[in-house]
Nucleic acid binder design. Structure first.
Lengths: 215, 215, 215, 215
DNA sequence: TATGAATGAGAATTCATTCAT
DNA sequence: TATGAATGAATTCTCATTCAT
């Protein structure tokens, strides 16, 4: 149709999409840095290099914008998780890989943790109102259940492990260390983000989880 | 009492102390509910039932007030930790008790987690500026080191366990579950705060940590 | 029709006319509902089902659009007045008919009153700038003068009645009741728009005017 | 008490009251000139010579401020009406006086008409939400009923006249002329506010009403 | 003729903070 | 110690209008 053939239409369409994505990225950074309450629409516009009014044009208001950012963040992590192919690996290797992935993802995407904190401060209202809630549900739980079951059958893993609990434990061990790294560093008087400290943390996490699972 | 013997100066001091504590408690609740950015000085005054001007009189500004709240929160948890007497217990029992304490404390003081989130969002600037930083440092690490060492000597625990890492892992497993309970509940489609879910979480945490430590 | 004979220029003209009229009607409704200050160009476009830009294309800006709506409103009422043929009737019947017409017109076109209110709030600037001012002048005054004169000659009406004053009185009695119906209903605690209330108002108006005129 | 005796308390109290009244007067003028939609909070603050924030401090928001202005306007006119003492006069004189009062009041308080127009544009929502609605109800209706009744008994007035209808007619004849004076002047090509035109209007109104009532 | 994208200037409202007593 | 009044600087959001095709 005209839309697709006319150079005008296509470009315009692409521009609209590009603008929306630019805004989303800028908003993600702003929300990550200042939280939902501390984020400033002005700064988001500035970051995006676009007119503030345009944010409202596309996203209605600050809350809806945050919701869009949150959805996008979940979509991103789910997309990456989908690349893991844990079922192709030995159970112990699969678990190790999951731990590494979790750790690396949080490390590479500190904004994800801040967004989650903001979302929880608001009692996950933004997720509840999301129409794409299904996309949020991690398929990883199913996969992890398969890995655990295979490990148990093969005799390398203990039985009776709830994959949800295990997933939360892995995430929690990484999340707490990274998300609270500033207060923890202050309290313990060591820099938790130094390369050595980081690799020690990953080793510890792996040891704990595999030490627990192995029989 | 002061009240009866000296109607003048001392009484006023008492009132001053009481006012300060009232403000602190109100501020803690407000910061916990809305975060540092979302908290409103007006609402804090209202919660405290005191004039807004008085907050400035005692705490200078919002940042300093947050700092005072944060310090108070750390002082509270340290006070409780001091009651644990872990060294009087068998190593396994001591670890179990620590896990239970951590879990129960976060459960009873959800504001502590929110305060930490806010503090970290601001890169722990409020701790760095605190003059009472020593109070923050947990004596628990020393104690935990003793427990781990005794367990190792007695042959019940593995060796080479960093007490800081272990402490962070225990805290992380509890914290992540409780602090992110809204988003997690939304994603997993189950109510993580139901009594049964809660007790299952505690069991899981204990199993993981003791499963890992035991040899 | 044009449609069938000339697919090119004429058809486009028809569309153009139709679009303009659609916009005018949408704008009239919007101005009537929210007043000039409260009307929103966005909503007018939405009501018209046409692109906002088109409004500017045809009407230049909001003020000019309001002016066009106002002119159209006057054109409408003048057109209707022209159907009255008061001079064909007995003087008393003619006056009665004029009262009924005025009442019915305001009742059927509440937007006319709101438009007048807006126009007067802006000191009728929009009329002053109108090039079609002649169309505004009501030929009814001439006609009413004739009716009054005939009544006087026939001995049924008193003399010395200024047709402009009378016209304003008739309009005012209807207008005030209908335009201020919300505040009046609130104050008097009765629903002035109930059918019975409405017919009583019409009777009263007729009685007052004819009671005054008759000798 | 302290409030009344201490110079501080009293002055402060008076200041608060004075500020509120200053704001009310400024708001009344602004609303009268631009309508509710066109009024600007900035300009109201400027007119009042007070900080904009203070308006919100005392009146919450624009709507509530308009409501307060409207209530004040009704209170004002009711206060004046209360001075009329119509029952002390001969029926015809009383009616004449009422007409003159209505005319003079609208003439001296054109803002009252604009406020009513705005209120009706918003379907009198502001009155409906007013807690002082009783104050709005005009005691004049009762009085007018008494006047009409006495006139009928004395044989000078016709019977069967609804005082509400009559009141609305008197008000309407004055209101329409004055409120719509700009459009009417434009249409009729005469200045309706010229002294002569004004006195002619008042005469006409009196003639119509008394001509109707008299028997 | 028609339209989606984009914008600058405002507008209401909010907020931490200070004044004056 | 305590308080009501007052303020300046944001902050979110809105609106008429224009751009580019």
């Amino acid at each position: 149709m005209a839309r697709e053939t006319s150079p005008g239409g296509e470009e315009r369409l692409r521009d609209a999409d590009r603008s929306q994505n630019t805004i989303l990225a800028a908003a993600r950074d702003e929300f990550a840095e200042y939280g939902l309450g501390g984020a400033r629409m002005d700064r988001i516009a500035e970051r995006a290099g676009l007119n503030k009014r345009l944010i409202y044009y596309y996203f209605e208001d600050k809350e809806k914008l945050f919701q869009a950012v949150l959805e996008q963040a979940y979509r991103d992590i789910r997309e990456q998780e989908a690349q893991l192919h844990l079922l192709d690996l030995e159970p112990a290797t699969a678990v190790r890989r999951l731990i590494e992935f979790t750790w690396d993802y949080y490390l590479a995407h500190p904004e994800f943790m801040t967004l989650l904190n903001s979302a929880n401060l608001h009692k996950a209202r933004h997720l509840a109102e999301s129409k794409r809630a299904r996309e949020l549900n991690s398929p990883l739980i199913e996969t992890l259940a398969g890995v655990l079951e295979r490990g148990r059958r093969e005799g390398s893993f203990r039985g009776g492990v709830d994959p949800v609990q295990l997933y939360v434990s892995i995430a929690g061990m990484a999340y707490f260390y990274l998300s609270n790294n500033y207060t923890l560093s202050a309290i313990f008087g060591r820099d938790l983000m130094a390369p050595k400290a980081r690799s020690e943390r990953l080793s510890h996490m792996t040891e704990v989880i595999l030490g627990y699972l192995s029989r």
